[in-house]
Simulated assay, not measured.
Amino acid sequence: MEPELVCMDSSGRANGMGVFGGGGLLFTVSLGLVRRLLAPRSEVRSDLQQLFPCELVVGMNGRLWVKSSSVQQTLVIANLLQSCDTMTDQQRRQLFKRVAQGAL
């Protein structure tokens, strides 16, 4: 079985990263969203971190692993990220604003 998500540095070594914490949720998104999340000043990532503090691991193969303080919050984050996949920046901001206001 091939790994879906591996934590390594640029030289191909674990260097303390290796296996990340237990639990969490692994799911797939488009490579376009992966690029948006990995951008140095990713608005998606920073807006999400303001809403829900969480651990987020982004794989270049389109795999995302997310873990938050509760299972419910982890599922909400996963659903938000999957929704962002097909949204414009303006639509995403409106969605995140509604979530912050507790409308969803």
Rank of each mutant, 00 (worst) to 15 (best):
L31K: 14
R45W: 12
P3Q: 08
A14Q: 10
C54T: 08
T88C: 08
L26W: 01
L31C: 01
Q82S: 12
L48C: 11
F52C: 05
K67W: 00
P53H: 01
Q94K: 11
S69F: 01
G21M: 09
M87N: 12
Q101S: 10
I77T: 04
Q82D: 10
R98Y: 06
G24A: 02
L64M: 01
G24H: 03
V29C: 03
S68V: 03
V44K: 09
V44T: 15
S11W: 09
L26T: 11
L38V: 05
N61L: 00
S83Q: 12
D47N: 09
L48R: 06
G32Y: 04
E4C: 02
D9C: 11
A14W: 00
Q91L: 07
L104C: 03
L25I: 03
G12R: 00
V76D: 13
S68K: 04
V44G: 02
V71F: 13
A103I: 01
Q73P: 00
V99Y: 04
L51G: 09
Q90V: 14
A103S: 12
V57P: 07
V99T: 06
R92L: 14
M87K: 12
S30P: 08
S10V: 13
K97Y: 13
G23A: 08
R63A: 01
V34T: 12
L31Q: 13
M1T: 14
D89Y: 07
L26D: 12
T88W: 12
D9L: 01
G32K: 09
F20R: 08
F20T: 06
R36W: 00
G23D: 06
V66G: 06
F96I: 10
S69N: 08
V66K: 01
S70G: 07
S10R: 11
N61V: 00
L5C: 04
E43S: 09
C84W: 13
E4A: 03
